[in-house]
Design a protein around this nucleic acid. Structure first.
Lengths: 166, 166
DNA sequence: ATTATCGTGGATATAATTTATCCACGATAT
DNA sequence: ATATCGTGGATAAATTATATCCACGATAAT
């Protein structure tokens, strides 16, 4: 069971976009370069973040991506579900209805108990992800980062930040 | 993110083996037939359950598989980790160390905060799985199953159960 | 107006992983 | 001796993840 690498990319992109002034943007190209990841594939994931209301996109020159809401209102769960989808990892195939001892569909009014137990565990996972806001993660990152990184990042942002009219 | 179908197969196999008398076995073929799943692939997963000390295997005629310990001492976590492995779903690729603003390895003494948050969520998931014993799941299944299934299952078990010498 | 920049969406290729099958082998009970 | 059963390795097929490319519409600068 492996989560898409795009989730990690998306989280770090949201972190970086959270450092921008209001309404400013970063282009997909800039986001890819900053993180050293393939641009053409990252765009797919950024699009999913736009579709799910986590990012806004601005077309045209000086356009790019920016946060659609504050980092305190974006959780890891939001990003994971936007990029990796909302389908459960465990997919019940109704094994109990197969084989020589199975009965007709009417004999299984309740959801399979195995499935219910797995769903409970996945809910605990989602609850924990929903507890982690991007603001908390970003703050923790800034508090513990090597001091040399701050001016580097500020300098880079200054060169790459776009400010569209709208 | 999808979990291997083998996990569901393995759980139901453990459930069925839990209904056997002590030291009795079911062959891989019988387990596959009962659940209507491919035998040759199921054997791979059964082997993992043996390797991880959840099942015991008995070779030779009248051989097969049986539980290595009681269902109350087997949790969903045991089976999930045996079949699907113990590697985390989220694998940090250290994105922070890439790109134009990255520093040398010495600048990152602590584990990435994103990774730590994801690990916390996965730990909550594992905790929930460890709470679910196969005894609980089996008991719940028997209590809620259609009454017609019980004699069917008992009959099938009687025909397919093997009792090896050791 | 014209042009260059940028995100969107679809089509498509490549790589990795999952799923599935097969066969030779050793162990064991009849 | 022989038939049954699990083990382990090799291999193939199917599915999913990863990655690239291009035509298109929108926008800002000139």
């Amino acid at each position: 069971m492996k989560m898409s690498d795009g989730v990690e990319w998306a989280i770090h992109c949201v972190m970086l976009l959270g450092a921008l002034p209001p309404s400013a943007t970063l282009s997909g190209k800039a986001l890819a370069e900053f993180h050293g990841i393939p641009e053409s594939y990252l765009l797919k994931h950024l699009k999913m973040l736009v579709t799910n209301g986590i990012l806004e996109s601005v077309p045209g020159p000086r356009g790019g991506y920016r946060l659609a809401r504050q980092t305190k209102d974006i959780t890891l769960l939001d990003i994971v579900q936007a990029v990796d989808g909302k389908r459960p990892a465990f997919r019940c195939t109704e094994i109990r209805r197969r084989g020589p001892c199975a009965l007709g569909d009417g004999a299984y009014p309740r959801c399979c108990g195995v499935n219910r137990a797995m769903m409970r565990a996945e809910q605990a996972y989602r609850d924990a992800l929903a507890e982690a806001t991007m603001k908390d993660i970003t703050d923790e990152f800034m508090a513990n980062a090597d001091p040399r990184i701050v001016p580097l990042g500020e300098n880079w942002l200054e060169e790459n930040t776009r400010t569209p009219k709208s």
